[in-house]
Amino acid sequence: MYLLKIEFKKLSSYLTFWVLLGISLLSTFLLTYWSTEFSFRINSAAHLINTTSWYQFPSIWGNVTWLCSYANLFFISIIVITLVCNEYTFKTIRQNVIDGLSKFEIVLGKIILIIGLSFAMTLFTGTVCLVFGLIYSEGAINFSGMFNNVNYLGDFFIQAIAYGMVAYFIATLFKRTGLSIVMFFVYKSIIESIIDWKFLPNNLGDYLPMNLFSELTPKPFAQTAANALGKGIFSMYSITSPTIEILAIVYIIAIGAGVFLLIKNRDL
């Protein structure tokens, strides 16, 4: 717990961090608020979606977590990369070790921070879901069923941690903020796609880390649309719960170990 306290003391008057966190929470709210408009444009099959049911319990949990996972991807990675690379730029990671933290504690402190950030984002997203759900349910709340899909929030939490850990690994590798942010998104949107498309047969690409993390919050109307059209036009994701959660956690632990090994064998 004292590791979290140390991390918090470092951030207490760091304006950039609070601004980034504020924007990420704001964008979660705005995405949810505008989401009924978006859903028309996102998919050509969108006319099949009943937008009035978008905010209804219990489907709102899956809908909003899917949408806000993009804010998650974007902001948690930028926040983590900024904080980690700062430690290298200011050489404070070196000073922290001189002052008394072991390299293991250094890594553990940041992982706890990532978990804390993910928890805060999940809590906020959950609150937004609850508020929108209550407002738009038009009095017909089915209390027994309203938390049926709340497990999406758990997946959202795991996903936030996972994105944060990938960002941590890349930041540790490159040490410079700008380069690390670029590499994070290059890996996510280019490198994994190329590996998937060029080198991996069949559904093996589904096991690539970013692909897998992204599918923790699946596209909500893909199944609906496929069903409505009466054919499997959407290539459905091959890994299902709970395998996907277990694999995600295994990846998270492996990435954490990777970060530790990088730092352990490095002169600070």
């Binding site: 140390i6 003391k9 207490s12 008057s13 760091y14 304006l15 200011f90």
Partner: peptide, 18 residues
Amino acid sequence: NFYPYLSAYKNLDVVAAI
């Protein structure tokens, strides 16, 4: 080596926490 955006006091507070 200190955090540039923190005050002298807060920087020492981080060291004390460590």
